[in-house]
Simulated scan of single mutants.
Amino acid sequence: MFLEIALETCLAQNHDFRVETIVVPDRMTPEVVAVVERFKPKWPGELSIQPLPMPERVVLPKLNNAFHNYGVQLLTGVQASRGSHVILHDADLFHMERDALDTRYRETADNGLNVSGISPVWDTWFADNDIHIAATWELCANRDWLRAFPRHFHLGHDGELLGEQHTFDITLHAQALSDPAKIRVFPHENIVHFNFVIGAYREFQKSSGPYLDDQFRMLLIRLFIDLFAEDREIYRELPEFDGLMRGLTNENERVFYPRATPELQTKYRDFRVKLDRIIEAEWMSNPERREEAARSLAPFDAHYGYAVVSS
C-alpha cells in the first residue's frame, strides 16, 4: 500500500532528468509485483523491481530489522542503478511540489557535489564535532561516490572517527570521511515526512502483546489502508478502526494509545497537520477520501482535543 502511494507521488513529479525508477522492497511479495505491474503502462521511462540479493533476501525478513533492511536496500539499488546520481526516496515521504526530484538532482549535479540532502543529519554528534552532513531521506548522491566506498561504510555499524567510537547510520561514515565542500544541505520545506513508518510497522509485527502507538504510526497505516489499498484483506494483523478506537481507553488492546496529556496533544496535532496536507494534496485530492478520513479520525480528534476548522 505504501509502495502504491509512493509510486503515485513519484508519478506526479516532473521527470526531465530521470533515467529509471528502481523499487527495492525489503520483502518480495506477489502484491509488490502486482503494484509495479499496474503502474508500468503509465510510467514515464523505466520502472523495475530489484530484489535483495541472496542470502539477504532470506535472512533479513527473519531478522525483521528495519535498520538492516534499509542499508541493504540502499546497496542493492545503487549497484543496479545506471544513472549518474541516485535519489533515495522514502515511501513515507510526500512531495508537495511537482519539480522536487528534478530539483534534488540539479542542486547536486550543477554544484559538482557528491551528496546533497534536504535536512542535516539527525545525529547531533557530527555537528558537535564540526562535521556537517546530510540525513538520508531524499538524499541525492553521485553514484560513483557511493560505489567508491567499501559496502559496510554505507551500512549501519559501529566504527571509529576522531579517536572516538560511534554508531554510524546509513551513509554517515562515508559522508564524514569525504570532502565537506562536496556535501550540502538544501532545506526544502514543502514536503511531508512521517519518519519511521515502515520500521514501526515491522516493530509492531515483532510484538506479541499490546503495542503502544504513541507516534500514531499504526493509526496512519490503517487510515491509508482504508483509503488507498487495493486489497484490504492482506492487512488482517493490524486492527480495524474500531479496534484502534478501543485502544484509546483500553491498554489491553492489540494497539493502544496514551492518555491526552499536553505533550501528547501537541504530538497528535503535529501528526494531524501533516496528514491534512497529504489528504488535501493535488495528486490525492478526492472529496470522498477526505470525508472518509474525517469520519475515521473523529474519535481520535476528540480524544486529543484536535479541532478541524472548515473554511
Rank of each mutant, 00 (worst) to 15 (best):
D110C: 00
N111K: 13
D99R: 12
A127R: 14
H95R: 10
E97S: 14
W125N: 09
A100I: 08
Y105E: 05
R104N: 10
P120Q: 14
D99Q: 10
I118R: 06
W125A: 06
I118P: 05
W125V: 15
N129H: 14
R104S: 14
D110F: 01
Y105H: 13
N111F: 02
D128Q: 13
A109C: 03
D130N: 11
W122N: 10
N114P: 00
Y105S: 03
I118C: 02
H132P: 00
T124C: 01
R104T: 06
I131M: 07
G112P: 06
F126V: 03
V121R: 07
D99M: 11
T108P: 01
F126D: 03
M96L: 15
N129L: 02
A109T: 09
D102C: 01
E107N: 15
R104D: 11
A109R: 15
D102E: 09
T103E: 10
M96I: 05
G117F: 00
L113A: 11
N114D: 12
R106Q: 13
P120H: 15
Y105M: 06
H132W: 05
T124I: 10
A100D: 11
N114W: 12
S116T: 11
S119N: 08
W125E: 07
M96D: 04
H95K: 12
A100W: 03
A127L: 09
N111D: 13
T124W: 07
Y105F: 13
H95T: 15
W122V: 10
R98H: 09
A127T: 14
N114T: 12
W122A: 12
S119V: 11
V115M: 06
V115Y: 12
D128K: 13
N114K: 08
D110G: 00
A100E: 11
R104V: 01
H132C: 02
I118L: 12
